[in-house]
Design a binder for these strands. Sequence first.
DNA 1: TAGGCCATCTGGTCCT
DNA 2: AGGACCAGATGGCCTA
Length: 153
Amino acid sequence: ILDSPESRLVDSTFINFVNDMNLIEFPQKYSLAPKRQVNNTPHSSRSQMRLNDSSWSRGLENDAERLVTTPPRYCTRGGHDHAKSKRRRIITVVQRQAANVRERKRMFSLNEAFDELRRKVPTFAYEKRLSRIETLRLAIVYISFMTDLLENT
DNA sequence: TAGGCCATCTGGTCCT
DNA sequence: AGGACCAGATGGCCTA
């Protein structure tokens, strides 16, 4: 039984294809077979729940405290240290808070897109929710399969 | 308990 | 100058 509405249009060829991918395309980790039995609330979109359960306001509430209590973490990406960087942008606490909120929003919309993609790719209904990387990989394979199908008909 | 996944924070870089 | 995007770091939750 496939999950997405579009999958009703897909004949058994694709179901076989999905089954075959289990053995061919993916290492164990990306298996399409159910890794465990049902769990009828497949996380019920765990990220969504977390984002909805007041984490936004929690984030806002905690921002100020963190900025005071948490020592800054410096990363050394690209090999150059900060002393050598061209210009160091100084931002205020308020700007940092605003940037954090924007970043949360950005990640939220990214996750919305992932959820949408999850609904588009066919998966077994009893399978656990696909992770983001699994969703991307499956979408790639699905598109390839559909492309082949079109070209060969 | 280790490993996977995710949310969040953060600073650097790019772009307008 | 400031927002968007990116990637590293960190900590929490969950599962095998």
